[in-house]
């Protein structure tokens, strides 16, 4: 009996601590969003003079007018962003899982060097290779083409690394072996047995990939020159103007509208992360 009592008081302490921590973190994590939403209702002057405020103002529709009044079409930007981000997310997640599967499930001679290569690529400082990249894209004439932003996402070393790390404990070789015995082809084994077992990992990386791609500004801005091809973040950045003519209210509104779809995607995908529990049972 004493043991049980001790246990439950420990549980209460654990819970109180847990809730306190969660609430505190929730406040600081939501803070930037609150500021963003409040600022989307304030005028540029109000924001310039007090950048951070918790009191909403009355300029929401004014800011919306500014946003819609520009020479661009936010709806078009939304669809462009959606196409690029969804395609590159799918490419990243599917092909990275496939690459990781190659490294984990098969025994081939260059396996180790290949994995080391992936790790090396992962460690290359990103700042410098970008200049070579867009020179290259210009040369092969893929400017103004979504493919220039989608195709490179097939080779995502970080995601491959994650998938490999996740796969090592989570993918039992015995199951693959028995599928082979049942006569399944390798491609089918990958698509129908390995992929479903990787669902939680894939959902996790899908969120990250989507967010990264959705928020990307630097490369899209340089590669997509055509107005019709602009993504949502490019449009928001155009509100920036130069320092003395910036529409801050509209920018915050634009940022807010940009974030909304990501939140929806996150809600949808986070369910799959949780679904991992049920799948775990299969392994036995």
């Amino acid at each position: 009996m004493a043991v049980v009592a001790g246990k439950s008081s420990g549980n209460v302490a654990f819970k109180i601590f847990g809730y306190a921590l969660c609430i505190f973190l929730a406040i600081i994590s939501l803070f930037p969003f609150v500021i963003m939403i409040v600022n989307s209702t304030r005028s540029t002057t109000q924001i310039q003079q007090h950048a951070v405020s918790l009191i909403p103002s009355t300029y929401f529709f004014k800011n919306l007018d500014v946003l819609l009044d520009k020479s661009f079409d936010p709806l078009k930007g939304f669809f462009n962003s959606l196409i690029i981000s969804s395609c590159s997310t799918i490419c990243t997640v599917y092909f990275s899982t496939m690459t990781a599967y190659a490294v984990v499930a098969y025994d081939w001679k260059l396996r180790k060097p290949f994995f080391t290569l992936i790790m090396c690529v992962l460690m290359i400082p990103a700042q410098v290779s970008s200049i070579g990249f867009y020179q290259f894209v210009y040369k092969i004439g893929l400017t103004n083409n979504f493919l220039a932003l989608i195709l490179p996402s097939i080779a995502a070393p970080t995601v491959v690394f994650f998938m490999r790390q996740y796969m090592i404990p989570a993918l039992p070789m015995e199951i693959l072996q028995s599928a082979r015995i049942d006569g399944a082809g390798e491609i089918r084994i990958f698509n129908q047995i390995a992929l479903p077992m990787m669902k939680p990992a894939m959902a996790t990386q899908a969120i990250f990939a989507f967010v990264t791609s959705w928020n990307a500004l630097f490369l899209p801005q340089i590669l997509l020159i055509d107005n019709d091809k602009h993504t949502l973040p490019i449009m928001v950045s155009q509100l920036n103007g130069d320092i003395y003519r910036t529409e801050f209210g509209a920018i915050y509104l634009g940022l807010f509208l940009t974030v909304l779809p990501v939140l929806v995607i996150y809600f949808l995908l986070s369910k799959h992360i949780i679904a991992g529990v049920a799948l775990g049972g299969v392994k036995g």
Binding site: I225, N227, S237, Q238, I243
Partner: peptide, 20 residues
């Protein structure tokens, strides 16, 4: 007219213009 507008605030206008 094809307009390309890149704000200077994040220092992205110049690299893009240079490349173009």
């Amino acid at each position: 007219i094809k307009k390309t507008i890149i704000p200077t605030t994040d220092g992205e206008y110049q690299p893009a213009l240079d490349q173009a």
